[in-house]
Computed example of a mutant assay.
Amino acid sequence: MTENQNINLELLLQSLEDDFDPQERMRILEILKKTNPIDDSLLGAKMVLEKNNWDYEVLKYTFSKTEERIETIARATKKTNNSINYLKYAAVLLPIGFVLGYFIHFTLTHNQSIDQFYSKEEGLPHYMGTENANFENLMVLYRDNKMKAAFGVSEEILIKKPQNDTAIYFHAVIGYELKNFKVAKEGYTKITQKKESAFYYDAVYRLGFTLKKLNEEKAAYQQFSTISKDQNNPYNQKAKEILECFD
């Protein structure tokens, strides 16, 4: 493919396949970034990609869910194979309103549904003794909902105790409350790599919400899926309910 070749929807959809050359896919996406499609379907696909940091997995997921609905309609109406193929083709050649309408509805509905399962971390009880004075100050600020001040204290503690699970975990918790989801992801991920940590299960669970906030749909789904299969995880049942929000 040459650098100035026009991108059409068929080529874009081919690039979403798992066995497609990753470098070729990147070239296609880069060209699409620089073009202004006049085809409604291609423009809709581009807008979905732009809203999700050009994560092709999100676009692939959107189209796959649309095709699943088309399959359901075809079975319910007893369509022939030729009709099914036509409907699949029609599902791919979606007008921009349908592409964005479905995707925006999906995003808003499921973000709201998933948020109902999220509960704010209660924090730790007050420590005794001067050695843990910084942690006690952190918890006072956290409980008083003074998150910006709490975040500053958590950073100071983390600098002094970079390997401390409590410091790492609450830095992530406060980051999430401040909508600094990149900080939250970094901290939770560190804890999830330490199964012996007292915060392990909480971090595993909260990482799922963080990934969702970062629009990492596939990773969020996989995170909750893993939790749902872990009988030792106290969030096992909640994860099963959350997974229904992705359907």
Rank of each mutant, 00 (worst) to 15 (best):
I157M: 10
K212A: 14
Y201V: 03
L211Y: 04
E155F: 05
H171I: 01
S154C: 09
D165G: 12
Y169G: 05
G208V: 01
N215E: 14
N164C: 14
G175Y: 13
Y201K: 11
A219E: 10
T210I: 04
E177D: 09
S225A: 10
P234L: 10
Q193H: 13
S225R: 08
F181M: 05
L158W: 09
G208E: 01
N164H: 15
T210M: 07
K195C: 04
I168A: 07
T192V: 05
K229Y: 04
N215L: 15
T210F: 08
L207H: 06
I227F: 10
S154R: 09
K212H: 14
L158Q: 10
R206M: 13
L158T: 03
E156N: 11
E196D: 14
T166D: 15
Y201R: 08
A198T: 07
L207T: 02
V153G: 06
Q163G: 10
Q222V: 05
K213W: 08
N215K: 15
T210R: 02
F199P: 07
R206Q: 14
Y188C: 10
A198E: 14
Q223E: 09
E196K: 12
Y176W: 09
F209R: 07
F199S: 05
Y188P: 08
G208S: 04
A219V: 00
D202L: 15
D165W: 12
Y201A: 11
I159A: 14
N232Y: 00
E216A: 08
Q231M: 13
K195F: 08
Q222G: 00
T192C: 10
F199M: 11
H171F: 13
G152F: 12
I157G: 06
K182I: 04
D202I: 04
T226L: 12
A150M: 05
Q222C: 00
I191Q: 07
T166W: 10
S225M: 13
S154V: 04
K185W: 08
Y169A: 06
Q163W: 13
K185R: 12
T210W: 09
Y176A: 11
V183S: 12
Y205I: 01
F170H: 13
Q193R: 13
S197V: 05
V153W: 07
A198D: 12
L158E: 04
L178S: 02
E155S: 12
Y221R: 11
Q223H: 00
I227A: 06
F151C: 01
Q193M: 13
L178H: 03
F199D: 02
F209L: 09
E186W: 09
L207G: 04
K212Q: 14
G208P: 02
E155G: 11
L178I: 02
Y205V: 01
K195M: 14
D202T: 02
S197I: 04
Q222K: 13
L211C: 04
Q223V: 02
N180H: 11
S225G: 12
I168F: 13
K161G: 01
A198M: 09
S228Q: 00
L158K: 11
V173C: 06
P162M: 12
F181S: 03
K229T: 01
E156K: 09
I157P: 07
E196G: 15
V173R: 04
